[in-house]
């Protein structure tokens, strides 16, 4: 399974066109593959490699560096509990313990029903709203023990389907940068001095502006 489907391959080509060099699209395309499948599997990595012209080992080498790329199947919801310093001070670690107990898995584990993967994560930039939790990278602030249980219940009941997409989908709004909109993106070696700089330099006379 899990090469990019036709629609995503089209999208992948459009994303590659946004970068001066195709390799820059590696991470965006891994996100796209993960959005398609919920995780990043080998066929998808091999397909990404083909699209950007590198080896699958290079895609794996990059992808495995980043925490968000899941190289094994994960739950529909990744519950990320922040335990870093600001959250630790206000009960993040206790919340994680509770989460382990409530979900019946240790940090890093996935519930047998495939609904939840629990992770103990580093600072998610919600420090003033500790303890913070992300579900598929959607924020939940100042989450107490009861709040957590309510959150899980709501997820199970489908009450948050509108705001929390299944794992893999990040932004629901994409930048729309169709080829006909692109102003300047070409390979670095094909770029010259921008026209407005050239104009400014010309009007500045001999002064070699930088």
């Amino acid at each position: 399974m899990a090469r990019l489907n036709e629609a995503n391959e089209q999208l992948a080509r459009a994303i590659i066109a946004r970068y001066p060099e195709p390799r820059s699209a590696l991470i965006p395309l891994c996100h796209l593959a993960q959005e398609q499948d919920g995780w990043l599997d080998e066929d998808a990595m091999a397909h990404v490699a083909e699209l950007i012209g590198c080896t699958p080992a290079q895609v794996l080498g990059t992808a495995s560096f980043y925490e968000m790329f899941k190289l094994h199947p994960v739950g529909k919801y990744c519950i990320n509990v922040c335990t870093n310093i600001s959250c630790q001070l206000l009960g993040g670690e206790e919340l994680l313990e509770h989460a382990e107990s409530r979900l019946g898995v240790r940090s890093g584990g996935t519930t047998p029903d495939g609904m939840f993967t629990l992770e103990d994560v580093e600072c998610v930039a919600a420090c003033t709203e500790a303890p913070a939790v992300q579900v598929n990278y959607r924020y939940f602030h100042r989450v107490g023990i009861e709040d957590f249980d309510a959150l899980i219940d709501a997820l199970l009941a489908g009450e948050l389907d509108d705001v929390v997409p299944p794992h893999g989908t990040l932004a629901k709004v994409r930048q729309d940068l169709a080829a006909d909109r692109i102003a300047n993106i070409t390979a670095p070696e094909d770029q010259e001095m921008p026209v407005w700089i050239a104009r400014a330099e010309a009007s500045a006379g001999e002064g070699a502006a930088t």
Binding site: E42, T55, P56, A57, G61, S64
Partner: peptide, 14 residues
């Protein structure tokens, strides 16, 4: 290639 990160970094193939 290097796979994974930090002290878990390893060399491996695809």
């Amino acid at each position: 290639h290097f796979i994974d990160r930090g002290s878990s970094t390893q060399v491996n193939t695809f």
